[in-house]
């Protein structure tokens, strides 16, 4: 993970990819002002999901290719520590990407995206995504068709997260009451808790051998 910060290859890929997706959406959807407000949260999360898949794949594939995963497994640390390390690393990457994408996004789309509640939804959403994504990426890098396997495994499982995050973000943009929104934030917290707990319990079996 430290190595990743040195090369910055993954981070820059995720960043450029995210920005490209944001731009592509602009051309694909003919976004006028009304449409922009309605779909902004959706565009943001589709971007996050795809860039996240890219990042998750690379982060574990690189470990596998370099053989450092075996090294890490031999290290006298708890396997779950490995999971949390990987997950926090992936989460951090997603947050760094978001830190750049959010301001650019709000600039290009002329929307107030940098505000506390949206940041909270991004924080919680990416946490859950990194949590379940790290587990499934650890699975998929050990399969034959590994680059295409991760999205197939991850996207259907991440649907509730996507729904909750988009609704929370969209609700904030539409200036809804907290009583309307709290439900979505609760759901995000519940998803994060459940899936990180499950991933923590089963991660041992994924990296065995």
């Amino acid at each position: 993970m430290r190595a990743e910060f040195r090369t910055r290859e993954l981070l820059s890929t995720m960043l450029v990819f995210s920005l490209l997706v944001v731009l592509t959406f602009n051309f694909a959807l003919q976004l006028d002002r009304m449409a922009r407000e309605n779909v902004a949260a959706g565009v943001l999360w589709v971007t996050t999901i795809f860039a996240g898949t890219l990042g998750l794949n690379r982060s574990l594939a690189a470990e596998k290719d370099r053989g450092s995963l075996d090294g890490l497994l031999m290290a006298p640390v708890d396997r779950s520590a490995l999971y949390f390390g990987k997950m926090l690393g992936n989460w951090l990457f997603m947050l760094i990407v978001q830190a750049v994408v959010l301001p650019v996004f709000s600039l290009l789309y002329n929307l107030p995206l940098v505000q506390p509640l949206i940041l909270l939804s991004v924080l919680l959403g990416t946490l859950g995504y990194a949590g379940v994504g790290t587990l499934l990426a650890a699975l998929s890098v050990q399969t034959r068709a590994r680059d295409v396997m991760l999205p197939i495994l991850l996207l259907p499982v991440a649907v509730p997260l996507l729904v909750a995050a988009v609704q929370a973000g969209g609700g904030v943009l539409a200036r809804r009451e907290w009583s309307d929104l709290s439900l979505w934030f609760n759901l995000l917290v519940a998803y994060d808790t459940i899936f990180i707990a499950v991933a923590y319990m089963v991660f041992d079996y994924v990296v065995e051998e």
């Binding site: 259907p156 509730p160 729904v163 609704q167 759901l187 991933a199 994924v206």
Partner: peptide, 28 residues
């Protein structure tokens, strides 16, 4: 077998949460 078991567990847990998420989305 190990991977399938893990994915079978993760996948199954997500089903009720998906249902819940979509249901409150539609009622809101």
């Amino acid at each position: 077998a190990r991977f399938a078991a893990v994915y079978g567990i993760v996948g199954f847990i997500s089903v009720p949460i998906t249902f819940f998420a979509i249901r409150i989305w539609r009622t809101i």
